[in-house]
Amino acid sequence: MREVKLIAVMALGTALLRFLPFLIFRKRTPPYIAYLGKVLPPALIGMLVIYCFKDVRFTTAPHGLPELIAAGSVVLLHVWKRSSLVSILGGTAIYMVLVQLVFA
């Protein structure tokens, strides 16, 4: 079945990437790889944030306003409460109201 095949490819591809470094550097970790292990996580989270905005059209109405307002709310909620749960639920609720009612 087509779906089962695609899901198997996604599962195996993901597992391959997670296991590969453990298999390659089984004996010892070179200092350069250890350095990358330290600085990459914040860089990759930054990458993921941009990734989420990749399909937003800023040149046509509503000019990405729902996304920008909701993302700004997440930052403010997080600085205020420091709780991922509050930031995620709050930001998502604001976004849903914006796209369903305000910019509908």
Binding site: V49, M96, V99
Partner: peptide, 16 residues
């Protein structure tokens, strides 16, 4: 509609 923003919110919160 708009619930998919929870993924964006997760990453924005982690970055913050």
């Amino acid at each position: 509609r708009g619930l998919e923003f929870s993924m964006t919110a997760l990453f924005v919160a982690s970055l913050t």
